[in-house]
Write a protein that binds this DNA or RNA. Structure first.
Length: 798
DNA sequence: GCTTAGGGTTTG
């Protein structure tokens, strides 16, 4: 799945046997394996991660030099890249670059009615897919960091290619021991990579050429993807930098430093479609000629197996065969055996073994319709293949090599006796070991064999396979990235950023992939939020100990006050206080409130500025708070006057209530120093009382969404500027509460309306300290709601 | 770090 950055403009490294097809001429269900499409990247979508190592990226390319009379506008087409190619494209290609695509398939564009682009899209996936990229005008000496990085990690092959040295190949009949050579050959035997006793995987193969020498080769590579992609005997392989050894009276080849390998289909007339195992490789017309020569020579030698693989319908008992199929489900049987449930769209004429598995151990559907069940084959894979089977996913297209159809009742692990007595049924076994090339390979989704298989499978109704185009349809439904012109739904943006960073907008998917500690700009919609009850969004925060606590509800506070008001125990007021007693009319007998005033304030004529109040209920306190600027509720404790428990407000100022931090306060009733102070506020009182004042903060958790992902973010430190309202006002003022309520209703309409406005937000990320390991926490900052959309327009009188 | 494997007459 390579991506090539061309150094000398397009054309220099693109295989010459391919012919270019105009974008306007692309039609569905046609084989374009011998064609290229060329266009300028006019839109580059975000890299979307569907699963680990499974990427998808959508881009739009536009033909620049189409026929003048073909259309008034140059044709554009959606191009969908899957897998590693998507990731490479995301990192390497920029808008404005020109790309040549090869090895693509053509599908129906699910977004054609919305984006009004080409009715088809180009799908680039798997091995045949290849992109050649050229920059508008590459600066001579200023290589991008990426280029530099690439060139340092390139294999020997490509660094030589950069120096444009001609690669020479040695015929298999001319090999001398003890040299490093480049060779071409036709594969006559191969094993899929298997784990060696050393550190690497090992591919063992045998090749031949016109010399008729059979040369054994061994490839050691740590990574599976760097192994030769051999699908069947007869494939043509090109290896660079293999070392010749003498072993058992013949020359063998082993990879050495700078090794690279490319394979090709070995059939005359098939598409060239190189299958490289390195990120870059060179392929010129001479290579093409060599492959074609080997193909026709091999055909004359009948080196290709007459029938490469056989369908289930042609399986005969006792035979060993290769099967090309799709995996629908799998289940472990025991530690040495795994069941693969596969189909190839044909029905085996023999009755097939049924295998019972433990419930809930099946990956993929655990049962199928009776009609589908008739087409399924149960394959038992053993020993070393169990490990490989673990990597397989339902939906994968597989080739299973040297599969055995065992007739009769066979003992199968996990079977009940009644099943094992099934007479004359076939069981498919992939025996342990790698002899005879036994193994499993995942075939790339758009390899010709898989394309053929897909055509067969698609003719069946209710296909449960993982369907890329369905996936795309789902993925393409919401609008794409912020810069995409194709935002179809609401385009109203109701917020703006006030930060000073110049970071480019990113998708949520991209944001999630970033390490914490950065700022991000996103354009998103609000999917949901918590808490739905606004009063729960208000919390109390201590700037000293950094703890956050809920605002106690009225019922609780009320119970604290009533408890204290019923306490008849006397207390001696402090010496500085002027105390008085008020009987509460109409209440239970003996209940009285006591009020205490600061003598100093009294002397300054500020009588109404502060009142210490004992024995009042919450309701009475609130009522009195309208007449006094500050009311501090107090109670008796062991004969002394103390503040109430700090879980209750320690101060009432009008409608506002103030709380102290229970951890950081050392509270005691003291006379505030009011000298030179015009107005006594909560800070002066808190300080006098030794109370660490808690800050009312507004916190919400918002679930954001865009076309690529969803993301939970917190609104806290910048919540007040976000809503243009102070948390303190929200805590005490109905109007401020209404404002938030309306804002949230507008961003996230109740009843699940999808027409949600867009928000331009600035996010910062940090590593969460007390959460589970490695969690990143996102916070909205420097962002303000600028307009509200109300569904019901309230007519304003002129 | 420089080994690993070097087909093969086919278990369940």
């Amino acid at each position: 799945m390579p991506l090539h950055v061309l150094s000398e403009g397009p054309g220099s490294q693109i295989p010459t046997h391919l012919t270019r097809v105009s974008i306007s001429l692309i039609v569905p269900r046609t084989d374009y394996s011998d064609n290229t499409v060329k266009g300028k990247v006019v839109h580059k979508g975000p890299l979307v991660s569907l699963a680990e190592d499974k990427y998808i990226l959508k881009t739009v390319i536009q033909e620049e030099d189409s026929q003048p009379n073909s259309s008034s506008q140059n044709p554009s087409i959606n191009m969908v890249l899957l897998g590693a190619l998507a990731k490479d494209f995301s990192q390497t290609v920029n808008q404005g670059d020109t790309v040549v695509a090869t090895g693509f398939t053509v599908g129906k564009s699910p977004t054609a009615h919305k984006d009004l682009l080409h009715p088809c899209n180009l799908l680039l996936s798997g091995d045949p897919a290849c992109l050649y990229v050229s920059r508008p005008s590459p600066p001579v000496d200023s290589r991008s960091p990426l280029r530099v990085k690439r060139s340092t990690t390139l294999s020997g092959e490509s660094s030589r290619a950069a120096k444009s040295a001609k690669v020479s190949y040695v015929g298999l009949g001319e090999l001398k021991p003890g040299s490093v050579v480049n060779v071409y050959g036709v594969v006559t035997f191969f094993k899929q990579p298997f784990k060696s006793r050393g550190t690497d995987f090992c591919t063992s193969l045998k090749i031949t050429d016109q010399s008729n020498q059979r040369i054994g080769c061994t490839v050691f590579r740590e990574k599976l993807e760097e192994h030769p992609k051999i699908f069947q005997i007869g494939d043509i392989i090109r290896m660079h930098r293999v070392k010749t050894h003498f072993f058992n009276d013949s020359i063998t080849l082993v990879n050495t430093f700078g090794f690279s390998v490319v394979t090709f289909d070995g059939c005359v007339g098939k598409a060239m479609a190189p299958r490289p195992s390195s990120r870059t490789f060179q392929f010129d017309p001479e290579d093409q000629r060599t492959v074609e020569e080997l193909r026709s020579w091999a055909a004359s030698q009948s080196l290709l197996p007459p029938v490469p693989t056989i369908p289930l319908s042609d399986v005969t008992p006792k035979a060993y065969f290769d099967l090309t199929c799709q995996l629908l489900a799998k289940a472990p049987i025991d530690t040495t055996c795994t069941l693969l449930r596969v189909w190839d769209g044909t029905r085996c004429p023999h009755s097939l073994l049924k295998v019972l598995v433990e419930p809930n151990t099946t990956e993929g559907p655990s049962s199928f319709s009776p009609d589908r069940e008739k087409l399924l084959a149960n394959i038992l894979v053993y020993d070393n293949h169990v490990e490989y089977a673990r990597r397989l996913k339902p939906g994968d297209f597989l080739r299973i090599y040297n599969l055995r159809a065992i007739p009769g009742s066979s003992k199968v692990p996990g079977l009940t006796s009644s099943q094992s007595e099934q007479a004359e049924c076939l069981a498919f076994h992939l025996h342990g070991g790698t002899a005879y090339g036994r193994g499993i390979r995942v075939l790339p989704g758009n390899s010709p064999d898989v394309q053929e298989l897909k055509r067969v499978l698609e003719s069946f109704p209710q296909v449960d396979e993982l369907n890329d185009s369905e996936l795309l349809d789902v993925w393409c439904t919401p609008p794409e990235s912020p810069d995409a012109k194709a935002i179809e739904c609401s385009t109203v943006c109701v917020s703006e950023r006030s930060c000073s960073h110049a970071v480019q907008p990113e998708t949520l998917c991209e944001v999630k992939l970033c390490a914490p500690g950065r700022s991000h700009h996103v354009r998103v919609q609000l999917r949901s939020y918590q808490p739905l009850r606004l009063h729960q969004a208000l919390r109390l925060y201590c700037t000293r100990c950094k703890t956050m606590q809920d605002v106690p509800d009225d019922e609780y506070v009320s119970s604290l006050f009533s408890g204290a008001s019923r306490d008849p125990s006397p207390c001696s007021p402090p010496a500085w206080a002027l105390s008085g007693r008020v009987d509460v009319p109409g209440d239970a007998p003996n209940r009285a409130m006591s009020v205490h005033l600061s003598t100093q304030l009294l002397s300054e004529g500020k009588t109404k500025q502060l009142l210490f109040l004992k024995g009042s209920t919450l309701e009475e306190t609130c009522r009195l708070a309208t007449g006094f600027q500050n009311i501090v509720p107090v109670m008796s404790s062991e004969g002394h006057m103390t503040l109430m428990d700090l879980s209750a407000p320690f101060l009432f100022r009008g409608r506002k209530r103030y709380y102290g931090c229970p951890r950081c306060s050392k509270a005691s009733v003291k006379e505030p120093c009011s000298e030179g102070v015009e107005l006594i506020d909560e800070k002066i009182i808190a300080e006098a009382l030794g109370v660490k004042l808690l800050q009312v903060v507004l916190t919400m958790k918002l679930e954001l969404q865009d076309a690529t992902d969803t993301l939970d973010v917190y609104l806290w430190r910048h919540a007040e500027s976000f809503f243009s309202v102070s948390a303190e006002d929200v805590a005490s003022n109905q109007e401020a509460q209404n404002r938030i309520r309306q804002t949230m209703d507008s961003l996230c309409p109740q009843g699940g309306s999808t027409d949600r406005p867009w928000l331009d937000l600035c996010l910062t990320s940090c590593r969460a300290e007390d959460e589970e390991q490695n969690q990143t926490c996102f916070q909205i900052c420097h962002s303000t709601i600028t307009k509200l959309l109300t569904a019901r327009s309230d007519p304003q009188p002129a």
